[in-house]
Each structure stands twice: as structure tokens, then as C-alpha cells.
Design a protein around this nucleic acid. Structure first.
Lengths: 235, 235
DNA sequence: TATATTACTGACCCCTCAGTCATTTATGCA
DNA sequence: TGCATAAATGACTGAGGGGTCAGTAATATA
């Protein structure tokens, strides 16, 4: 809409190349803010600086627009993550740090962070898109983190455990942070500081709740104190 | 004839007392399955075995029905959680176990588990309900877990750390499990086994990824190997 | 400047669905 | 048995919004 040439006299200009991206950006904003159903195509078009008719020149339906938003927004990101892993071979815990913060900077802390929220909300209504997102984003992201974990286990940096579930448990608080940001954060007087949250996440998954040797000595073996073995009575 | 038991000849019966609960149950199912906007009141009524007109005898609007579903479904649960904590005073790690699994049995593994998903999806569209849910459920649940954590820190069972963020990090994978169940689980060929997932969660937050002493010795201090200190190069 | 092309507009169509209400049916009571 | 009343129905209404298309204005070409 902001053409550098002086265009005040023109009612509109032809910008075939730029329209789809602008429409998708506008749609992303509104879908994230209001959800799929509550987003009106008139509003999407208005935000992109065109009329609804123009929107239909580039996207054949609301659902197609939705698909395009998801695809174009997310696929480049996961590819970037995979490249990042290939290029670096440091210790597993360092790789994990890097992935966590790179993800936060390129997804969590940008408007793209709204996409996961959107997908969680809508994937039951659009199973096809849900499957696409699962295959192209979730499972690839999962594989990425799992390979880091398994590397660390092989090297002895991490203890051995079920890598599938451990991966889910590492990713869960990250995704949860995103979902929180795009839902309840507005109710929360003390907003989450993402860096601290992620920092403490890394700290907790590596060190757990166990007291460090220097912290405290209460006469019991830490390993015994902190183990939560199955189905005990409540004492 | 005129036998109250025989009702095949009646087109419908008067059941003033039972209707609201049946309508709310039907609405919960459909709201969770399809989201608020995509749920038709005709369908809710049909599932409850009445007509749409009857629905409006008991709820003045779709939004009021939604509020009623949330309120009636969730408030008893959090109260139960608070009672559970008051009644028990075992070691912190045992209390945590109990809360985690009690929550799973009474919320996660029932149809009530759909409510958090619903709230995450819709709270931006219904800020008033979102605030209500935040105050009456989220922050109370948070306080519950945080008090367990702080107890454990005071007793030396847990190391000391920021209790607010630690609480979030403990609750996040639990809520995430719920959200997953109600969104992407249908795409996932290997469905999450909730008990194993929660078990491993308790294990990870207490023991972290650090190798246990008996697991492996690679010549470094475990405390050093597993610590993920800030901003290192990738080596 | 004249003509052809096409990006873009916006009024309109039509269906869906929240919400209404006149009517019908069940039930308590005399 | 009949009447009064409340519970339940389902056809109806009107607004909102997805989707269309005849027309208009910008640009390319000559």
C-alpha cells in the first residue's frame, strides 16, 4: 500500500507480486488474534489494503488462505532448524541450548509464534491441515530434538531413558510458553519472562529438583531423597 | 394407559430438573470437539434430546451456555485439589505425585479434560470468561503446586530456585498433555501413554538428564557436565 | 493518444445459524 | 374427566459473512 512513488492521485495500484504475501501476513495476524471462524475476510482484505474481491483473485477460499498461511509461515523455519543441527556438532547440552533459543528468537518471539496456537485450536476442524502440520513441523521438530538427546545419551552426557517421552517432555514447556503467550498471558499481571523461563527449563531438565551437593545436606542420599518411585503411601 | 412408566406414546416428557445438566454435557462435548464458533445450537439441543427452543428456556444465549459449561465443569475440581492438599502432609515429592495423578484421573482422563483446550482456544474471544478461568482455575492450581514446591525447598527435599517459574515448568507438560490429547493426538500413530508420560515427567524434574552415579563415569564431574551455563560457544 | 489487457473494486447473492414465538403436548390438580 | 399451567416444539426471522461478477481504473503497447 505504501508505494514510494507519489500515488495520491491513483485510487489503487497494480501489485500482483506483493499481494499474496501481504494478504497472508494480514490473515496470520487476524487468525492468531481472533481464531479462524471469527476472522472476516473483509477484515483480512482491509488490513492488506485491498478489497475482498482481490483476496479471491489469489486464494480460492477461506480455507485455502488458511492453508497457505500455515505452509508459507512454518516450513522455512523447520528447515532452518534442521540445517542448524547439521552444521553444529558441539556437546549435546550446547546443541540443546542453541535449538531452544534459536527457536525462541525465530518463532516464539515473532508473529509466527501464533501459528502453533492456531493449529492447536483448529486442527480438529481441518484434519487435513492438521496432518500436514503434524508431518511437516511437529514430527520433524520432534526428530530434531530427539537426535540431540540420543547423541547425549550415547556420549554419556545424559543418562539413558526413553528418548521419545523425554523429547516430548523437553518440547512441551517450550510450546506451552507459546500457547500461553497467545492466550492467557493478557490475564497475567506478572508476564512470563521468556528468557528466564527457558533458562530455568534447561536448568531443570538437566539438574532436576535435586539439591546440589553444595546446597544443603540433610543426612540422606540425594539420589534417594529425590527419587519418586511408583505408588508409595503418603507417609 | 396413563401409566407413567409407559412413555413410548409420549412425544416428549417434562424434565425440568434434568435439562440444564444434559444440555451442558452435550454442549461440552461439542464445544470441545468443534470449538465454540463451529458448534451449532441445534446440534447441542439434538444431542441433549430436545429442540433448540428448549435450550433457550434454560440458557439465554450461546455465550451464557458456554459460561455455564466452564463454570460448572471446573470449579468443583479445583476445590477438590485444594482439599487434597490440606488433608495430606507427606513428603513434598509424594504430594506432587498425588496431585499429578489425581489431576490426571479426575480431569485429564475425563471429558472435563477438554475444558482447558477450549479455554486456550477461546479465551481471547471471551476475555471475561478467560479472566474468570484464570482467577478460579489457573492461578489456584498454580498456587497449589507452588506451595508443594516451597514446602519441599524449605525441607531441603528440593534445591532452592525460583518457585514461580519452577511451578510453571512443572505444570506445563501436564497441561500440554491435555492439549495434545484434544488436538494432534489423532494424527499421532503412537499415542502418548499418559501414565508413562507423567511418570517420566516426575522422574525428569526430580533427576533431570544428569547421569546417575552408577550409570556411567566419563571422568568429568556430573555437576559440570550437565550444567547448561549461559551463552557458551558451540565448541 | 488510442486500444488492449488485467488487476482491482464493491455491490450483490444466498446460505447458515443465533435467537423468537405462536402453537402443541404433558402434567398437576379440582 | 376437564381445566390450568408449564414444558417443549419447530417454523420463522434477520443479521452476518463467504463467495461472485459486472464494471472500473491502472498499465502495457503501439
Amino acid at each position: 500500500m505504501m508505494n514510494p512513488q507519489v500515488r495520491q492521485d491513483r485510487r489503487w495500484t497494480r501489485r500482483k507480486e506483493a499481494r499474496p504475501a501481504e494478504l497472508m501476513a494480514a490473515a496470520l495476524d487476524l487468525f492468531v488474534e481472533r481464531g479462524y471462524a471469527a476472522t472476516r475476510l473483509d477484515d483480512v482484505a482491509a488490513r492488506a489494503g485491498v478489497s475482498k474481491g482481490t483476496l479471491y483473485l489469489y486464494f480460492s477460499s477461506k480455507e485455502e488462505l488458511f492453508k497457505a498461511v500455515i505452509r508459507s509461515g512454518i516450513v522455512p523455519l523447520i528447515e532452518r532448524g534442521e540445517r542448524l543441527l547439521e552444521e553444529n556438532q558441539g556437546p549435546a547440552h550446547e546443541l540443546m541450548r542453541q535449538i531452544v533459543f534459536a527457536w525462541w528468537e525465530s518463532v516464539g518471539n515473532t508473529k509466527l509464534g501464533g501459528i502453533p496456537k492456531l493449529m492447536f485450536s483448529e486442527c480438529r476442524n481441518f484434519p487435513e491441515i492438521g496432518k500436514f502440520y503434524y508431518d511437516e513441523v511437529i514430527s520433524r521438530g520432534h526428530r530434531l530434538m530427539q537426535s540431540v538427546l540420543e547423541t547425549g545419551m550415547k556420549s554419556g552426557e545424559f543418562r539413558s531413558m526413553d528418548a521419545n517421552y523425554a523429547t516430548r517432555l523437553i518440547l512441551a514447556p517450550m510450546v506451552y510458553l507459546l500457547l500461553w503467550r497467545h492466550s492467557f498471558d493478557f490475564c497475567d499481571s506478572k508476564h512470563i519472562d521468556a528468557d528466564r523461563y527457558l533458562e530455568q527449563h534447561l536448568d531443570m531438565i538437566s539438574n532436576g529438583l535435586a539439591p546440589r551437593s553444595r546446597d544443603q545436606s540433610n543426612g540422606e542420599q540425594p539420589a534417594k531423597v529425590i527419587s519418586m518411585k511408583k505408588k508409595g503411601g503418603i507417609g
